[in-house]
């Protein structure tokens, strides 16, 4: 199979998979007991109102009609409306997704860069004291539940040292946090930076461990391989050796990166809750509790898309960064 055909094949596969996930999510959430209408009735809405709402939202139509309507609407970019807030789902989630990505993206990237460097360094010194004890602080921060790390940071940096605020994204004093200014303006302030510091650190602390661990093992493995012995024998300069070493050892770390990214998005709920960060994770939990299925369904679909497309991208990229991998035996 040529590479072009492989990419085409995988693209089709990805699209089909996404469609299956969408279908699964749609029917899964319809199967769950409890609906928004039940919740309204529970909160004291009378039966006629609930019935009228059900009719208006088209929830009384047969399931396949609803499904067909949902899919066709989604294809035109309309994900429906949030039942809680009566605004289009996309308007409801877009800034929240942005806030979450703003937190996760840089934090995971920094964690991976640090982790890779530390792991490479430790692996290079196999058998030394640093190698033996160097991973321990990382294991500590990596296996602490993120809310415990977060609480510790809050107690130390916000409580005792009083350096940063305990929660939120902007302070009340942020002069740009109003509709007079462009949406991005309040993000470019010191106020935002100090609110950003603790959640950022929490995620970095959590996600440095895995790349460091994997990188250390890889480096040790590559150092033992024949081709590397050859490079050492020929007297290749140190930096050149390091470059060849890294080229090989970094590959598994690259595959892990999107996995960590998606896992962090799932686990972000807790960090967002502790720090009161207006992100998508916490909004998702609230939506689940409120049985706001259009929002829940859309966010789950987005996350699944992220996972699937991330895997797809890694599979495709892998052929470029590691020429040994060929698509032929696939």
């Amino acid at each position: 199979m040529s590479r072009v055909r492989y990419v085409a094949f995988r693209s089709v596969q990805t699209v089909v998979l996404l469609f299956l996930i969408l279908t699964f999510l749609f029917f899964f959430f319809r199967m769950l007991p409890g609906s928004y209408a039940d919740l309204m009735a529970f909160q004291g809405a009378n039966e006629a109102t609930v019935e009228a709402m059900q009719e208006k939202w088209g929830l009384n139509d047969p399931l396949y009609v609803q499904y067909f309507r949902y899919v066709t609407n989604l294809l035109t970019g309309d994900a429906g409306s949030s039942l809680q807030f009566r605004i289009p789902v996309w308007d409801f989630v877009k800034m929240k997704i942005f806030n979450s990505l703003l937190l996760v993206g840089p934090a995971i990237t920094v964690g991976y860069i640090f982790g890779t460097l530390i792991g490479g360094f430790l692996g290079n010194r196999r058998g030394s004291k640093e190698e033996k004890y160097g991973l321990i602080p990382l294991i500590l921060t990596g296996s602490f539940p993120s809310f415990v790390t977060a609480i510790m940071f809050i107690i130390v940096f916000a409580g005792w040292l009083n350096l940063v605020p305990t929660s939120g994204m902007f302070g009340f004093s942020n002069p740009y946090n109003s509709s007079e200014f462009a949406w991005w303006r309040p993000y470019l302030t010191k106020d935002f930076a100090i609110h950003y510091a603790l959640p950022f650190l929490t995620i970095v602390a959590r996600y440095t461990y895995l790349p460091a661990l994997v990188m250390r093992t890889n480096v040790v493995e590559v150092l033992g391989q024949d081709f590397f012995y050859y490079h050492r024998m020929t007297g290749l300069p140190g930096e050149q050796q390091l470059k060849r070493l890294m080229n090989h050892a970094i590959l598994p770390v690259v595959t892990l990166y999107p996995i960590s990214m998606t896992r962090a998005i799932g686990g972000l709920v807790v960090i967002e809750m502790v720090f009161n960060w207006p992100g998508i994770g916490y909004a998702l939990v609230q939506a689940v509790f409120a049985r706001d299925f259009p929002v829940v369904q859309f966010v789950f679909f987005l996350v699944a898309t992220f996972v699937v497309v991330g895997n797809f991208a890694v599979d495709i990229l892998y052929g470029y960064i590691d020429p040994r991998v060929s698509v032929d035996n696939n």
Partner: peptide
Amino acid sequence: DVVYGVPLIPFAIVLVSL
């Protein structure tokens, strides 16, 4: 693979509410 694809905590919350 499918179980891998679901975000753990949010899905756990959905299941618990189920």
